[in-house]
Design a protein around this nucleic acid. Structure first.
Lengths: 112, 112
DNA sequence: GATCATTACCTCGCTATACTAGGCATAATG
DNA sequence: CATTATGCCTAGTATAGCGAGGTAATGATC
């Protein structure tokens, strides 16, 4: 269902600061109010795609726990892409709203 | 970009009354404020899909102009599907809103 | 110290689906 | 009679999200 919106979602999750892949998943789950519980098979390829596109930059880091993580950070281009996506989303959501908003002339009434 | 939302869009276009394929396209274009200008190769298969799923019913009709048209009309199931989709959309849109809404703690400020 | 859950990364392949590019037919227009 | 607009259709392609699998280290349980 989120085909075409994933990149925007991932970028949005990283807008508040760098994070590693696993963390991005949790960030998205939290901020979406549990609506988006994205599997790794979705996130990791997306992160790679975004990095290749120049929207993200990554570097390896070691947590205090000793675990290796790849930490992603938005680039300037990424920020611009996000705000573009955000504008697109706005138009998209408005269009959908127009489609089943304040329309449906002879709708309710008979709610058998 | 509207992957996964097309069915909902088509159903929404037919919520205000029956229409034929070509008309659905124009209806969608209008109501979306020109945001969605969907090609026939998108709409016709979608209509067939929706009819096969039992969300739409169609019958051939002849306009005054003499042209044959296939007119689609929502079924009871279609109406239910639409309202379900609508609810899903609501949650989806809210989730997106949560992702780049009232967040981004250290964002703007420096807008060099 | 063996077993298990959690964290953390990765990739291959499936599948669903929107769209491109074609084709067909009729009515109106010049 | 050629062109444009209306009106329908389908085959094939490309994309992308996701399931299923694999690897490895840490911490806890027994």
């Amino acid at each position: 269902m989120l085909k075409g919106h994933l990149d925007m979602i991932v970028l949005a999750a990283l807008a508040s600061g760098p994070a590693h892949g696993y963390g991005v998943i949790q960030e998205i789950r939290q901020r979406s109010g549990n609506a988006f519980d994205l599997p790794e098979g979705t996130i990791y390829p997306a992160l790679h795609r975004l990095e290749k596109a120049g929207y993200l930059a990554s570097h390896w880091s070691t947590a205090e726990s000793g675990r290796k993580r790849r930490v992603y950070k938005m680039t300037r281009r990424g920020e611009r892409a996000l705000s573009d996506h955000r504008a697109l989303w706005q138009r998209f959501a408005d269009a959908i709203g127009g489609l089943f908003g304040e329309k449906a002339r002879a709708p309710a009434r008979s709610h058998r």
